[in-house]
Lab assay of single mutants.
Amino acid sequence: MASQGTKRSYEQMETDGERQNATEIRASVGKMIDGIGRFYIQMCTELKLSDYEGRLIQNSLTIERMVLSAFDERRNKYLEEHPSAGKDPKKTGGPIYKRVDRKWMRELVLYDKEEIRRIWRQANNGDDATAGLTHMMIWHSNLNDTTYQRTRALVRTGMDPRMCSLMQGSTLPRRSGAAGAAVKGVGTMVMELIRMIKRGINDRNFWRGENGRKTRSAYERMCNILKGKFQTAAQRAMMDQVRESRNPGNAEIEDLIFLARSALILRGSVAHKSCLPACVYGPAVASGYDFEKEGYSLVGIDPFKLLQNSQVYSLIRPNENPAHKSQLVWMACNSAAFEDLRVLSFIRGTKVSPRGKLSTRGVQIASNENMDAMESSTLELRSRYWAIRTRSGGNTNQQRASAGQISVQPAFSVQRNLPFDKPTIMAAFTGNTEGRTSDMRAEIIRMMEGAKPEEMSFQGRGVFELSDERAANPIVPSFDMSNEGSYFFGDNAEEYDN
């Protein structure tokens, strides 16, 4: 993207840094990872977990959730003011799984939030270390993106479920800051804005008074975040219109849905970061690795190297396929839920299948599930090659597409044709070009129609051997075009429920 120079890199967003050079960025990201790792080690000690239990991804998720809940100030305040039966607002906890007599047992633990905050700050040299908290939120978000298709949420806001490739980060909490905003897809931002506008339509006082002023500035800020994701002048001009509207209503909703559809071809720039579970960072720190000293990046080879040398386990339900569970977590670790499966298959070195073909449910185990038949197995999170994460949407291309997802959002900077089903997408653009945004709409449609099938995206960008740390010898991959490109292809993934 041309304006790259004016933006802070995501590592800076990730670490609240002012302008830093590459070495400083690597050190501050490393410091953040160190903090998460030290916190995780301490929690495993508190909970008396064995090494194996500490490497269980379900335990990692519970521990991450506990610290996120302990620092969720708004919710904590709300819980104190609106006490609900049987919930102690000062405590947080969740299921911890232990191996007892050759069987997995679930144990519900409860801790004072104050105590968890103390352990977290102690692991982070006394700081609140917001960057580390956001990092864990993005890992949870990436896992949700890989596990669930947001059909219901899309339909509720009037969008087409086939636009799911635009929904990265749709389950990120509001408090995820600049680093969170960077990884949100165009569809996620559109959905947040539509929800806001709908509230304004239904509630006369939404934009009024002292609160209304705050609401208005939040609305304009979200519009600017979305505008910054678009790469064409016409899309940005249309966002200006939406932002400046005196009284946002149905016309703005129409414009936003139009823009979301246009992003299936004229893709937005959305950041991709490899955020790993805390149970990967903990053992690495415990083994003596100093992330701050060595430096770390979320968008280069580092996460690949770390996963190459990590042992992570997962509980497996009786009829689940461990290899499929591994694929789910591998995609989440690489922030690749909406990437082209052919690119992923090449990088991973084994075939990556669409969601609907995987015999696996989510990673988390519900409290009512029976533990008797639970097994555990090693997650295979290694890769054959590594590639640089991208934040450009890439230019655009036609490809055989599917009944489910009709476009992709690249996660890796790797040369390819970008699949999208042009006739299906263009069919949504018939007729409606009147109104105050008509010239911009016409211009956007013209650009979409001009998108050429034979153009290559990320020209000359390749993948790298894991021994090639400096990215000196790019390998331009070859793809098996007979395979499906979309992950949520004609899909039956479970729906995400809060």
Rank of each mutant, 00 (worst) to 15 (best):
A472E: 08
N319V: 00
R74N: 07
P318R: 01
D290W: 10
E73A: 01
I301G: 02
T92G: 08
E449S: 01
E73Q: 15
R441W: 12
A403R: 08
R382W: 06
A401Q: 12
H82L: 03
V186I: 02
Y78F: 15
K422F: 08
V408W: 09
Q168W: 07
I225C: 15
M105A: 02
I36P: 02
R208N: 09
I347W: 00
T171L: 06
E73R: 01
R461T: 13
T146Y: 12
I253N: 06
R342P: 03
R243C: 14
F479C: 04
G462P: 02
Q231P: 02
E14S: 00
G349S: 02
I36C: 10
I119P: 06
P89H: 03
L226F: 15
E294Q: 15
R389W: 14
G169P: 03
Q12Y: 01
A427V: 06
K293D: 07
G5Q: 09
F291Q: 13
T390H: 10
R342K: 14
Q399E: 14
R75A: 06
D439S: 15
D127V: 13
F412A: 06
G17K: 00
Q58F: 09
S170M: 14
R117S: 03
T151W: 10
S392R: 14
S335N: 01
G17W: 03
T378V: 05
G132S: 15
A332N: 08
D160W: 09
S335V: 10
S457T: 03
N224V: 10
L79Y: 15
N492R: 07
Y111Q: 15
D255H: 07
L315N: 04
V408Q: 07
I444L: 14
Q20F: 09
Q20A: 05
D160A: 08
Y52V: 02
V280A: 02
E465K: 12
S377Q: 02
R65A: 03
P95M: 09
L226M: 11
K422I: 08
M374C: 14
S314R: 06
K452A: 00
K90G: 15
G209D: 14
G295M: 10
M238K: 07
A493Y: 10
L166T: 13
A260Y: 10
N334G: 13
K325G: 11
G295Q: 10
Y40H: 12
G295P: 10
L259I: 01
